[in-house]
Design a protein around this nucleic acid. Structure first.
Lengths: 214, 214
DNA sequence: TTTTGTGAAACGCTTCACAGCT
DNA sequence: AGCTGTGAAGCGTTTCACAAAA
Protein backbone atom coordinates (compact mmCIF):
# COMPACT_ATOMS: atom_id res chain seq x y z
CA UNK A 1 0.00 0.00 0.00
CA UNK A 2 1.01 3.60 -0.53
CA UNK A 3 3.00 2.79 -3.67
CA UNK A 4 2.49 4.63 -6.90
CA UNK A 5 -1.08 4.34 -8.16
CA UNK A 6 -1.82 4.98 -11.82
CA UNK A 7 -4.27 7.62 -12.96
CA UNK A 8 -6.32 4.92 -14.63
CA UNK A 9 -6.72 3.24 -11.27
CA UNK A 10 -7.81 6.42 -9.50
CA UNK A 11 -10.32 7.16 -12.25
CA UNK A 12 -11.83 3.74 -11.70
CA UNK A 13 -11.95 4.31 -7.94
CA UNK A 14 -14.29 7.23 -8.66
CA UNK A 15 -16.55 4.93 -10.63
CA UNK A 16 -16.53 2.29 -7.90
CA UNK A 17 -17.41 4.93 -5.32
CA UNK A 18 -20.36 6.18 -7.34
CA UNK A 19 -21.73 2.65 -7.57
CA UNK A 20 -21.11 1.97 -3.88
CA UNK A 21 -23.13 5.08 -3.05
CA UNK A 22 -26.04 3.56 -4.94
CA UNK A 23 -25.61 0.15 -3.33
CA UNK A 24 -25.45 1.70 0.11
CA UNK A 25 -28.57 3.75 -0.55
CA UNK A 26 -30.28 0.53 -1.63
CA UNK A 27 -29.26 -1.15 1.63
CA UNK A 28 -26.88 -3.65 0.01
CA UNK A 29 -24.43 -4.98 2.61
CA UNK A 30 -21.58 -6.54 0.65
CA UNK A 31 -20.39 -6.63 -2.93
CA UNK A 32 -17.89 -8.89 -4.70
CA UNK A 33 -15.28 -7.92 -7.26
CA UNK A 34 -17.27 -10.06 -9.68
CA UNK A 35 -20.38 -7.88 -9.33
CA UNK A 36 -18.34 -4.70 -9.64
CA UNK A 37 -16.62 -6.15 -12.71
CA UNK A 38 -19.94 -6.87 -14.41
CA UNK A 39 -21.25 -3.40 -13.63
CA UNK A 40 -18.32 -1.72 -15.38
CA UNK A 41 -17.44 -4.41 -17.93
CA UNK A 42 -14.02 -4.87 -16.33
CA UNK A 43 -12.03 -7.89 -15.18
CA UNK A 44 -12.63 -8.82 -11.53
CA UNK A 45 -8.91 -9.21 -10.86
CA UNK A 46 -8.34 -5.66 -12.02
CA UNK A 47 -10.80 -4.37 -9.44
CA UNK A 48 -9.13 -6.39 -6.69
CA UNK A 49 -5.73 -5.03 -7.77
CA UNK A 50 -7.06 -1.49 -7.80
CA UNK A 51 -8.36 -1.84 -4.26
CA UNK A 52 -5.40 -3.84 -2.93
CA UNK A 53 -3.17 -0.80 -3.40
CA UNK A 54 -4.79 0.61 -0.28
CA UNK A 55 -4.65 -2.35 2.06
CA UNK A 56 -6.71 -5.46 2.60
CA UNK A 57 -10.11 -3.93 2.05
CA UNK A 58 -12.02 -7.13 1.37
CA UNK A 59 -12.99 -10.24 3.27
CA UNK A 60 -12.16 -13.60 1.67
CA UNK A 61 -15.18 -15.68 0.96
CA UNK A 62 -17.45 -12.66 1.47
CA UNK A 63 -16.39 -9.74 -0.69
CA UNK A 64 -16.28 -6.07 0.28
CA UNK A 65 -18.48 -4.51 2.96
CA UNK A 66 -20.26 -1.74 1.06
CA UNK A 67 -20.35 0.84 3.88
CA UNK A 68 -16.70 0.27 4.79
CA UNK A 69 -15.39 0.34 1.25
CA UNK A 70 -17.44 3.43 0.44
CA UNK A 71 -16.04 5.20 3.50
CA UNK A 72 -12.51 4.14 2.65
CA UNK A 73 -12.76 5.24 -0.97
CA UNK A 74 -14.06 8.64 0.07
CA UNK A 75 -11.03 8.94 2.30
CA UNK A 76 -8.61 7.72 -0.38
CA UNK A 77 -10.06 10.15 -2.94
CA UNK A 78 -9.88 12.97 -0.41
CA UNK A 79 -13.63 13.51 -0.45
CA UNK A 80 -14.01 13.34 3.33
CA UNK A 81 -13.41 17.06 3.67
CA UNK A 82 -14.36 20.35 2.08
CA UNK A 83 -12.95 20.96 -1.39
CA UNK A 84 -13.27 24.54 -2.51
CA UNK A 85 -13.17 25.10 -6.24
CA UNK A 86 -12.75 28.29 -8.27
CA UNK A 87 -13.73 28.61 -11.90
CA UNK A 88 -11.70 31.01 -14.01
CA UNK A 89 -13.62 32.38 -16.97
CA UNK A 90 -17.27 33.38 -16.58
CA UNK A 91 -18.26 32.60 -20.15
CA UNK A 92 -20.88 30.07 -21.20
CA UNK A 93 -18.76 27.11 -20.16
CA UNK A 94 -17.62 28.63 -16.87
CA UNK A 95 -21.21 29.42 -15.93
CA UNK A 96 -22.40 25.94 -16.85
CA UNK A 97 -19.65 24.35 -14.76
CA UNK A 98 -20.37 26.66 -11.82
CA UNK A 99 -23.94 25.41 -11.75
CA UNK A 100 -23.21 21.78 -12.63
CA UNK A 101 -25.05 19.71 -10.00
CA UNK A 102 -22.67 16.74 -10.26
CA UNK A 103 -19.88 18.75 -8.62
CA UNK A 104 -21.83 19.75 -5.54
CA UNK A 105 -22.97 16.18 -5.03
CA UNK A 106 -19.60 14.69 -4.14
CA UNK A 107 -18.66 17.47 -1.73
CA UNK A 108 -17.05 19.95 -4.10
CA UNK A 109 -18.06 23.55 -3.50
CA UNK A 110 -17.75 26.10 -6.25
CA UNK A 111 -16.92 29.14 -4.16
CA UNK A 112 -15.90 31.69 -6.79
CA UNK A 113 -15.93 32.61 -10.47
CA UNK A 114 -13.28 34.89 -11.93
CA UNK A 115 -13.33 37.04 -15.04
CA UNK A 116 -11.33 39.99 -16.29
CA UNK A 117 -14.28 41.68 -18.03
CA UNK A 118 -15.41 44.58 -15.82
CA UNK A 119 -19.03 44.13 -16.94
CA UNK A 120 -19.13 40.66 -15.42
CA UNK A 121 -17.39 41.32 -12.12
CA UNK A 122 -19.86 41.59 -9.24
CA UNK A 123 -22.59 39.59 -10.95
CA UNK A 124 -23.54 36.05 -9.93
CA UNK A 125 -24.21 32.75 -11.66
CA UNK A 126 -27.74 31.35 -11.54
CA UNK A 127 -26.86 29.32 -8.48
CA UNK A 128 -25.37 32.38 -6.82
CA UNK A 129 -21.61 32.07 -7.31
CA UNK A 130 -20.07 35.56 -7.27
CA UNK A 131 -17.82 36.71 -10.12
CA UNK A 132 -14.59 38.29 -8.91
CA UNK A 133 -12.03 40.30 -10.79
CA UNK A 134 -9.25 38.01 -12.04
CA UNK A 135 -6.71 40.27 -10.37
CA UNK A 136 -8.25 39.27 -7.02
CA UNK A 137 -7.50 35.61 -7.58
CA UNK A 138 -4.64 35.22 -5.15
CA UNK A 139 -6.39 37.15 -2.38
CA UNK A 140 -9.74 35.36 -2.76
CA UNK A 141 -8.07 31.97 -3.19
CA UNK A 142 -6.26 32.28 0.14
CA UNK A 143 -9.25 33.75 1.94
CA UNK A 144 -11.67 31.07 0.69
CA UNK A 145 -9.21 28.19 0.93
CA UNK A 146 -9.49 27.32 -2.75
CA UNK A 147 -7.58 24.14 -3.58
CA UNK A 148 -8.75 23.41 -7.12
CA UNK A 149 -9.00 25.77 -10.11
CA UNK A 150 -11.01 25.08 -13.24
CA UNK A 151 -9.78 26.89 -16.37
CA UNK A 152 -12.59 27.87 -18.73
CA UNK A 153 -11.01 30.74 -20.65
CA UNK A 154 -10.09 30.97 -24.36
CA UNK A 155 -6.90 29.21 -25.44
CA UNK A 156 -5.07 32.49 -26.00
CA UNK A 157 -5.12 33.47 -22.33
CA UNK A 158 -5.05 30.00 -20.77
CA UNK A 159 -1.30 29.80 -20.07
CA UNK A 160 -1.32 33.24 -18.46
CA UNK A 161 -4.28 32.29 -16.29
CA UNK A 162 -2.62 29.03 -15.21
CA UNK A 163 0.48 30.95 -14.19
CA UNK A 164 -1.64 33.20 -11.98
CA UNK A 165 -3.40 30.18 -10.51
CA UNK A 166 -0.07 28.56 -9.66
CA UNK A 167 1.21 31.76 -8.10
CA UNK A 168 -1.91 31.85 -5.96
CA UNK A 169 -0.72 28.58 -4.41
CA UNK A 170 -3.32 26.32 -6.05
CA UNK A 171 -1.92 22.83 -6.64
CA UNK A 172 -4.64 21.20 -8.76
CA UNK A 173 -5.99 22.48 -12.07
CA UNK A 174 -8.72 21.16 -14.33
CA UNK A 175 -8.27 22.68 -17.77
CA UNK A 176 -10.96 22.94 -20.43
CA UNK A 177 -9.07 25.14 -22.85
CA UNK A 178 -7.52 23.53 -25.90
CA UNK A 179 -3.77 23.36 -26.29
CA UNK A 180 -0.84 22.42 -24.12
CA UNK A 181 -0.34 24.14 -20.78
CA UNK A 182 2.81 24.02 -18.68
CA UNK A 183 2.74 23.78 -14.90
CA UNK A 184 5.68 23.45 -12.50
CA UNK A 185 6.34 20.17 -10.69
CA UNK A 186 4.12 19.76 -7.66
CA UNK A 187 1.08 21.09 -9.49
CA UNK A 188 -1.34 18.57 -10.97
CA UNK A 189 -2.92 19.50 -14.30
CA UNK A 190 -5.75 17.53 -15.82
CA UNK A 191 -7.04 18.59 -19.21
CA UNK A 192 -10.38 17.92 -20.86
CA UNK A 193 -10.00 18.71 -24.54
CA UNK A 194 -13.46 18.94 -26.08
CA UNK A 195 -12.17 19.32 -29.63
CA UNK A 196 -9.94 16.25 -29.34
CA UNK A 197 -12.92 14.26 -28.06
CA UNK A 198 -15.09 15.25 -31.01
CA UNK A 199 -12.28 14.65 -33.50
CA UNK A 200 -11.77 11.17 -32.12
CA UNK A 201 -15.40 10.45 -33.01
CA UNK A 202 -14.88 11.97 -36.42
CA UNK A 203 -11.91 9.65 -36.95
CA UNK A 204 -14.07 6.68 -36.05
CA UNK A 205 -16.74 7.72 -38.55
CA UNK A 206 -14.17 8.37 -41.27
CA UNK A 207 -12.35 5.08 -40.82
CA UNK A 208 -15.18 2.62 -40.16
CA UNK A 209 -17.01 2.87 -43.42
CA UNK A 210 -19.77 5.41 -42.97
CA UNK A 211 -20.27 5.74 -46.70
CA UNK A 212 -18.51 9.07 -47.03
CA UNK A 213 -15.10 7.47 -47.33
CA UNK A 214 -13.55 4.03 -47.73
CA UNK B 1 -0.79 1.55 -42.88
CA UNK B 2 -4.46 0.93 -42.33
CA UNK B 3 -3.88 -1.37 -39.36
CA UNK B 4 -5.52 -0.84 -36.03
CA UNK B 5 -4.72 2.56 -34.58
CA UNK B 6 -5.12 3.13 -30.85
CA UNK B 7 -7.32 5.83 -29.43
CA UNK B 8 -4.30 7.37 -27.77
CA UNK B 9 -2.72 7.76 -31.17
CA UNK B 10 -5.80 9.41 -32.71
CA UNK B 11 -6.05 11.80 -29.78
CA UNK B 12 -2.48 12.86 -30.41
CA UNK B 13 -3.19 13.31 -34.12
CA UNK B 14 -5.72 15.98 -33.10
CA UNK B 15 -3.06 17.77 -31.12
CA UNK B 16 -0.56 17.58 -33.96
CA UNK B 17 -3.17 18.97 -36.36
CA UNK B 18 -3.92 21.91 -34.11
CA UNK B 19 -0.24 22.78 -33.95
CA UNK B 20 0.20 22.33 -37.71
CA UNK B 21 -2.64 24.81 -38.26
CA UNK B 22 -0.66 27.35 -36.26
CA UNK B 23 2.59 26.58 -38.05
CA UNK B 24 0.88 26.87 -41.44
CA UNK B 25 -0.70 30.19 -40.48
CA UNK B 26 2.76 31.39 -39.46
CA UNK B 27 4.15 30.38 -42.84
CA UNK B 28 6.38 27.58 -41.51
CA UNK B 29 7.25 25.14 -44.31
CA UNK B 30 8.49 21.99 -42.59
CA UNK B 31 8.55 20.56 -39.09
CA UNK B 32 10.52 17.66 -37.60
CA UNK B 33 9.32 15.04 -35.16
CA UNK B 34 11.79 16.57 -32.72
CA UNK B 35 10.04 19.95 -32.78
CA UNK B 36 6.64 18.33 -32.44
CA UNK B 37 7.95 16.22 -29.57
CA UNK B 38 9.21 19.29 -27.71
CA UNK B 39 5.90 21.09 -28.23
CA UNK B 40 3.92 18.30 -26.59
CA UNK B 41 6.57 16.89 -24.22
CA UNK B 42 6.50 13.56 -26.06
CA UNK B 43 9.16 11.27 -27.46
CA UNK B 44 10.02 12.00 -31.10
CA UNK B 45 9.91 8.30 -32.02
CA UNK B 46 6.34 8.14 -30.74
CA UNK B 47 5.30 10.91 -33.10
CA UNK B 48 6.96 9.18 -36.03
CA UNK B 49 5.23 5.92 -35.12
CA UNK B 50 1.88 7.70 -34.84
CA UNK B 51 2.26 9.18 -38.31
CA UNK B 52 3.78 6.08 -39.91
CA UNK B 53 0.48 4.26 -39.45
CA UNK B 54 -0.82 6.25 -42.38
CA UNK B 55 2.01 5.88 -44.86
CA UNK B 56 5.36 7.55 -45.39
CA UNK B 57 4.32 11.09 -44.59
CA UNK B 58 7.76 12.54 -43.94
CA UNK B 59 10.92 13.24 -45.89
CA UNK B 60 14.19 11.88 -44.47
CA UNK B 61 16.66 14.58 -43.62
CA UNK B 62 13.96 17.23 -43.89
CA UNK B 63 10.99 16.38 -41.71
CA UNK B 64 7.32 16.79 -42.53
CA UNK B 65 5.98 19.35 -45.01
CA UNK B 66 3.54 21.35 -42.88
CA UNK B 67 0.89 21.96 -45.53
CA UNK B 68 0.91 18.35 -46.71
CA UNK B 69 0.81 16.83 -43.25
CA UNK B 70 -1.94 19.20 -42.16
CA UNK B 71 -4.01 18.28 -45.20
CA UNK B 72 -3.41 14.57 -44.65
CA UNK B 73 -4.31 14.72 -40.95
CA UNK B 74 -7.53 16.55 -41.73
CA UNK B 75 -8.35 13.74 -44.13
CA UNK B 76 -7.37 10.99 -41.67
CA UNK B 77 -9.45 12.57 -38.91
CA UNK B 78 -12.39 12.96 -41.29
CA UNK B 79 -12.40 16.75 -40.97
CA UNK B 80 -12.35 17.37 -44.73
CA UNK B 81 -16.15 17.34 -44.89
CA UNK B 82 -19.17 18.63 -43.03
CA UNK B 83 -19.83 17.08 -39.63
CA UNK B 84 -23.27 17.85 -38.28
CA UNK B 85 -23.65 17.58 -34.53
CA UNK B 86 -26.75 17.46 -32.34
CA UNK B 87 -26.74 18.25 -28.64
CA UNK B 88 -29.29 16.46 -26.51
CA UNK B 89 -30.19 18.36 -23.37
CA UNK B 90 -30.69 22.12 -23.49
CA UNK B 91 -29.59 22.75 -19.92
CA UNK B 92 -26.66 24.91 -18.88
CA UNK B 93 -24.10 22.48 -20.21
CA UNK B 94 -25.94 21.78 -23.48
CA UNK B 95 -26.25 25.49 -24.15
CA UNK B 96 -22.60 26.12 -23.39
CA UNK B 97 -21.53 23.32 -25.71
CA UNK B 98 -23.87 24.55 -28.46
CA UNK B 99 -22.12 27.91 -28.41
CA UNK B 100 -18.59 26.61 -27.80
CA UNK B 101 -16.43 28.32 -30.44
CA UNK B 102 -13.81 25.54 -30.49
CA UNK B 103 -16.27 23.15 -32.16
CA UNK B 104 -17.13 25.41 -35.07
CA UNK B 105 -13.45 26.06 -35.72
CA UNK B 106 -12.54 22.56 -36.89
CA UNK B 107 -15.55 22.21 -39.17
CA UNK B 108 -18.10 20.81 -36.74
CA UNK B 109 -21.55 22.36 -37.07
CA UNK B 110 -23.98 22.24 -34.20
CA UNK B 111 -27.21 21.99 -36.15
CA UNK B 112 -29.74 21.18 -33.43
CA UNK B 113 -30.45 21.10 -29.72
CA UNK B 114 -33.01 18.71 -28.26
CA UNK B 115 -34.97 18.85 -25.02
CA UNK B 116 -38.11 17.23 -23.71
CA UNK B 117 -39.23 20.26 -21.69
CA UNK B 118 -42.07 21.94 -23.64
CA UNK B 119 -41.03 25.37 -22.35
CA UNK B 120 -37.67 25.07 -24.08
CA UNK B 121 -38.74 23.68 -27.43
CA UNK B 122 -38.81 26.35 -30.14
CA UNK B 123 -36.34 28.64 -28.40
CA UNK B 124 -32.77 29.15 -29.58
CA UNK B 125 -29.32 29.23 -28.03
CA UNK B 126 -27.43 32.53 -28.02
CA UNK B 127 -25.72 31.57 -31.25
CA UNK B 128 -29.04 30.66 -32.82
CA UNK B 129 -29.26 26.84 -32.55
CA UNK B 130 -32.93 25.83 -32.47
CA UNK B 131 -34.24 23.58 -29.70
CA UNK B 132 -36.33 20.69 -30.99
CA UNK B 133 -38.61 18.32 -29.14
CA UNK B 134 -36.69 15.18 -28.19
CA UNK B 135 -39.37 13.09 -29.88
CA UNK B 136 -38.34 14.70 -33.17
CA UNK B 137 -34.79 13.39 -32.89
CA UNK B 138 -34.95 10.66 -35.50
CA UNK B 139 -36.75 12.86 -38.03
CA UNK B 140 -34.47 15.88 -37.58
CA UNK B 141 -31.35 13.71 -37.46
CA UNK B 142 -32.08 12.21 -40.84
CA UNK B 143 -33.17 15.49 -42.39
CA UNK B 144 -30.12 17.41 -41.18
CA UNK B 145 -27.63 14.59 -41.72
CA UNK B 146 -26.55 14.49 -38.10
CA UNK B 147 -23.64 12.10 -37.57
CA UNK B 148 -22.58 12.92 -34.00
CA UNK B 149 -24.71 13.30 -30.88
CA UNK B 150 -23.58 14.99 -27.67
CA UNK B 151 -25.38 13.83 -24.52
CA UNK B 152 -25.82 16.59 -21.95
CA UNK B 153 -28.77 15.31 -19.93
CA UNK B 154 -28.93 14.20 -16.28
CA UNK B 155 -27.60 10.71 -15.48
CA UNK B 156 -31.10 9.34 -14.84
CA UNK B 157 -32.24 9.77 -18.44
CA UNK B 158 -28.91 9.29 -20.21
CA UNK B 159 -29.30 5.62 -21.13
CA UNK B 160 -32.78 6.22 -22.53
CA UNK B 161 -31.51 9.15 -24.58
CA UNK B 162 -28.61 7.13 -25.94
CA UNK B 163 -31.01 4.41 -27.03
CA UNK B 164 -33.04 6.96 -28.98
CA UNK B 165 -29.87 8.36 -30.53
CA UNK B 166 -28.78 4.91 -31.66
CA UNK B 167 -32.23 4.19 -33.09
CA UNK B 168 -31.98 7.43 -35.05
CA UNK B 169 -29.00 5.89 -36.85
CA UNK B 170 -26.30 8.03 -35.22
CA UNK B 171 -23.03 6.12 -34.92
CA UNK B 172 -20.91 8.43 -32.75
CA UNK B 173 -21.80 9.73 -29.29
CA UNK B 174 -19.98 12.10 -26.96
CA UNK B 175 -21.37 11.63 -23.46
CA UNK B 176 -21.09 14.16 -20.63
CA UNK B 177 -23.41 12.45 -18.20
CA UNK B 178 -21.88 10.48 -15.34
CA UNK B 179 -22.23 6.72 -15.17
CA UNK B 180 -21.86 3.85 -17.58
CA UNK B 181 -23.80 3.81 -20.84
CA UNK B 182 -24.24 0.82 -23.11
CA UNK B 183 -24.21 1.10 -26.87
CA UNK B 184 -24.44 -1.69 -29.45
CA UNK B 185 -21.39 -2.69 -31.49
CA UNK B 186 -20.82 -0.37 -34.43
CA UNK B 187 -21.59 2.71 -32.35
CA UNK B 188 -18.67 4.66 -30.88
CA UNK B 189 -19.18 6.13 -27.43
CA UNK B 190 -16.75 8.56 -25.86
CA UNK B 191 -17.43 9.75 -22.34
CA UNK B 192 -16.20 12.84 -20.53
CA UNK B 193 -16.85 12.36 -16.85
CA UNK B 194 -16.47 15.70 -15.11
CA UNK B 195 -16.85 14.28 -11.62
CA UNK B 196 -14.16 11.67 -12.21
CA UNK B 197 -11.84 14.42 -13.47
CA UNK B 198 -12.33 16.52 -10.35
CA UNK B 199 -12.01 13.53 -8.05
CA UNK B 200 -8.72 12.61 -9.68
CA UNK B 201 -7.44 16.05 -8.66
CA UNK B 202 -8.82 15.55 -5.19
CA UNK B 203 -6.92 12.26 -4.95
CA UNK B 204 -3.74 14.02 -5.95
CA UNK B 205 -4.23 16.66 -3.26
CA UNK B 206 -5.09 14.05 -0.64
CA UNK B 207 -2.11 11.83 -1.38
CA UNK B 208 0.68 14.31 -2.05
CA UNK B 209 0.86 15.97 1.30
CA UNK B 210 -1.23 19.10 1.13
CA UNK B 211 -1.27 19.50 4.87
CA UNK B 212 -4.79 18.18 5.33
CA UNK B 213 -3.61 14.59 5.35
CA UNK B 214 -0.30 12.83 5.30
C1' DT C 1 24.65 15.67 -41.89
C1' DT C 2 19.95 15.55 -40.82
C1' DT C 3 15.86 13.19 -39.94
C1' DT C 4 12.65 9.56 -41.06
C1' DG C 5 10.79 4.76 -40.47
C1' DT C 6 11.09 0.70 -37.78
C1' DG C 7 12.67 -3.77 -35.51
C1' DA C 8 13.91 -4.82 -30.76
C1' DA C 9 13.96 -3.71 -25.91
C1' DA C 10 11.75 -1.71 -22.09
C1' DC C 11 7.91 -0.52 -19.64
C1' DG C 12 3.31 -0.52 -17.64
C1' DC C 13 -1.19 -2.20 -17.34
C1' DT C 14 -4.38 -6.14 -17.48
C1' DT C 15 -5.52 -10.91 -17.11
C1' DC C 16 -4.66 -15.49 -15.52
C1' DA C 17 -4.37 -18.76 -12.12
C1' DC C 18 -4.08 -20.19 -7.65
C1' DA C 19 -2.69 -20.07 -2.70
C1' DG C 20 -4.80 -18.62 1.42
C1' DC C 21 -8.39 -17.08 4.35
C1' DT C 22 -13.34 -17.24 6.02
C1' DA D 1 -17.53 -23.59 -1.13
C1' DG D 2 -16.70 -18.67 -2.02
C1' DC D 3 -13.95 -14.84 -2.72
C1' DT D 4 -9.82 -12.05 -1.92
C1' DG D 5 -4.93 -10.90 -2.71
C1' DT D 6 -1.12 -11.55 -5.69
C1' DG D 7 3.02 -13.58 -8.43
C1' DA D 8 3.57 -14.63 -13.12
C1' DA D 9 2.17 -14.41 -17.87
C1' DG D 10 0.31 -11.79 -21.53
C1' DC D 11 -0.36 -7.84 -24.13
C1' DG D 12 -0.26 -3.18 -25.83
C1' DT D 13 2.28 1.15 -25.85
C1' DT D 14 6.48 3.78 -25.63
C1' DT D 15 11.39 4.34 -26.07
C1' DC D 16 15.77 3.02 -27.95
C1' DA D 17 18.89 2.63 -31.49
C1' DC D 18 20.13 2.36 -36.11
C1' DA D 19 19.73 1.49 -41.15
C1' DA D 20 18.10 4.03 -45.04
C1' DA D 21 17.14 8.12 -47.57
C1' DA D 22 17.62 13.06 -48.83
Amino acid sequence: MGDQVSEQTTNRLSLYLRFLNELDADGVRTVSSKVLAEQFALNAALIRKDLSHFGDLGVRGVGYVVKDLRQRLRQILGLDRRLNVAIIGAGNLGFALADYPGFRQEGFRIVALFDSLPGKVGRRSRSGVLIHDSRELERVARREGITIAVIAVPAASAQMVVNTVVEAGIKAVLNFSPGALRVPPGVKLKSVDLTVSLESLSFYLASSGDGARM
